[in-house]
Computed example of a mutant assay.
Amino acid sequence: MLLTTLALLDVALRAATIGQLVLLVGVGLNRKPIREGTLLLLAAIACGIAYLLLTAPVPDAAYGMIRNILLLLTDAWAYALWLAAMYFFQEGFSVRHTPIWVRPFVIVWIAWHLYFFGFRGGDGIYHQINHGLSILILAHIIYTALTGLSDDLVDKRRRLRLMLSGALAAYGVMLAIDQLWLGRQLQSATLSLANATLVFASVTWFSVYLLRTNKGSVIPEPDSGFDTRSQTALPHEYVNLKRALDDFIERGDYMQPELDIASMASQLGDKEHRLRRLINRQLGFQNFSGFLNQLRIQKARQWLASPQHASTPIMNIALDLGYGSIGPFNRAFKRSTGLTPTQYRAQFHNQP
């Protein structure tokens, strides 16, 4: 089979992209210990390689017996990418935390995918349904990445959020062009080449990003909870900002409702990116909400243990600390202490 110039360029870009992805797999497997985030990322990469092969401008018959395997992985790509994105962007996310009652449904769904794509070759209406679900999943990844941007204190991870959102949005536009009437006006080879170019550019950026980034600054870890008045030497340019932040905390201004990092920076009279770096690099927090919650939960523990607040309703304490309702306060408190506010208070005021 002779390939046109566009098709040859398309295949070359896909081959170069697959080479980069294989390199990332090698780097990921070489890092010890292999964490859950690494495994999820490797799964997404494997599905991405299958997608690049199966959507290349060559007949399906060229893949022979492995065609169904490639199809299975290709149609699982959005799900694998979603799991990896949630691990990177959602604090505390883990596949191991999947509720027990959900697991049987997941097993049945995986078995159905194996049967439908692996044995039936994707022949049926469910193939189109799965495409629709994949688009919704990719949209949710974009939503999660962008809505968490303001809370994220890690500069490199913030760039990853923007890059991933932009790449997926561009991919969605190409899907729309391909499915709508405009796609019929363009040569399929042109759309395929545009797709290969987008994927190549995105993977190249991502490869450079991962290879140059310290793993610990990308994969979210629990906030270290450093003392906000740590005497660790600060760079000279942050001394005044740190002093202003200490005064802000001393006054209890962190208990303002709906406080975000932009508002705090404005009240401190400094730039948001400088405050973000101070809290992240000097105090050890990766999310602004984690920093804020630690301050508020510390104060909550003092109040709950104090005789002066022994009869104060938990709701009032939550509102006074700046929480909009009791639910977020209860979740943050239990995540920090392992106890509900009521259980914690009982240790001090309900002794026999």
Rank of each mutant, 00 (worst) to 15 (best):
S325K: 11
G269Y: 01
E221F: 10
H273S: 11
R96F: 11
F333Q: 10
A233D: 02
P33R: 09
L283R: 02
A15F: 05
A244N: 06
M163K: 15
W205L: 09
S224Q: 11
Q256R: 13
W112V: 12
Q179N: 10
L24R: 12
I110M: 14
A145N: 14
I110F: 13
L138R: 10
G132F: 01
E237T: 05
A78V: 01
A80F: 12
T342S: 13
I261Q: 02
A76F: 11
R276C: 11
Y87A: 05
F348P: 01
N350V: 03
D151S: 10
L70T: 01
L234V: 00
T213Q: 12
T204M: 14
L53Y: 13
N130G: 03
H140M: 15
R281I: 01
F333S: 06
N293L: 01
S134Q: 05
P33L: 01
V199I: 15
I110S: 13
R281V: 00
G124Q: 06
G252R: 04
I45W: 04
G252A: 04
T228I: 11
T228M: 03
D227R: 13
Q308T: 07
Q90H: 11
V239L: 13
V27I: 12
D75K: 03
L292D: 08
R120M: 11
N214T: 09
G132V: 00
L3I: 07
G132H: 00
Q343P: 03
Q185G: 14
L292T: 03
L70Q: 02
H97I: 00
Q267Y: 07
F288Y: 13
G122R: 08
A233T: 10
L83I: 06
G327A: 14
R345G: 01
V239K: 08
R67W: 08
F288S: 06
L23T: 09
L9G: 15
Q347M: 05
F226I: 05
L29H: 11
A318F: 08
L191D: 02
M315L: 15
A194G: 14
V11G: 07
S94T: 10
G252W: 07
S325D: 10
L186V: 07
A80Y: 07
I137D: 02
F333N: 08
S224Y: 11
N316G: 00
L149M: 09
W112C: 06
K156M: 08
I125M: 12
Y63R: 04
H309Q: 12
L29R: 15
K271W: 08
